[in-house]
Nucleic acid binder design. Structure first.
Length: 192
DNA sequence: TCCCCGATTAACT
DNA sequence: GTTAATCGGGGAG
């Protein structure tokens, strides 16, 4: 029996990140529904120099300090959006970055959003994932999961030994901290 | 107010 | 392997 999703998002980010692997992230778009299996995540918390919440509460990071179960969308490098799931207790400033996912449903919609056809290149990176499911701005940041156009559904159980833990990607500070989780052997993870 | 740089990607050489 | 694209946050002045 897998833990309830509501329970998972109440956990600290370090515990929630591996638990989110294998779940299905869904979004309702004007063109239809898209579904993807989460295959890679990263944990961030307030004591982490690489985390947006490290420097305390600001207008941008406010959702991270809410109770778990909200979305946090941020914009970076002048061109990319990334989707996070806020976890933990209110005031903690924790979250899990969705880094990569395997497309399950709504291929045509995602292919149109990404302007490519290759299935395994649709969402194998945080910016690509956001673009594939139609996140083109930060208006979803702070919205409540399951009460907005984005929600989670239970997925295939992932064996503990299939979960690989490694250093995070694409950051300078605390880059060696082992807070990246992904499914072993999945062709859909962001980094080979 | 200015200035630097990022939880990235894609298109180069 | 290297680098341009591109803009908002937040620290410095």
């Amino acid at each position: 029996m897998k833990p309830d999703i509501k329970e998972i998002v109440s956990w600290p980010a370090l515990a929630a990140a591996p638990a989110l692997l294998g779940l299905t992230v869904c979004r309702r778009l004007p063109q239809g529904i898209v579904r993807l299996k989460i295959v890679e995540t990263e944990a961030y918390h307030q004591d982490d120099p690489a985390s947006h919440s490290f420097r305390g509460l600001t207008a941008r990071t406010a959702p991270m300090f809410q109770a778990g179960g909200r979305l946090y969308v941020y914009f970076t490098y002048g061109m990319h959006y990334c989707l996070n799931i806020v976890t933990g207790q209110a005031g903690r400033g924790e979250g899990v970055l969705l880094r990569a996912a395997e497309p399950l449903e709504g291929f045509k919609i995602m292919q149109a959003n990404r302007s490519i056809k290759d299935k395994k290149n649709l969402a194998n990176g945080p910016g690509k994932l956001a673009q594939a499911i139609g996140i083109l701005d930060t208006t979803l940041s702070g919205k409540i999961l399951n009460k907005s156009s984005i929600w989670l559904e239970p997925g295939e159980p992932v064996e503990a030994e299939q979960i690989i833990i490694g250093p995070r990607v694409g950051i300078r500070r605390a880059a060696d901290a082992p807070m990246r989780f992904y499914i072993k052997g999945s062709p859909y993870v962001s980094k080979v």
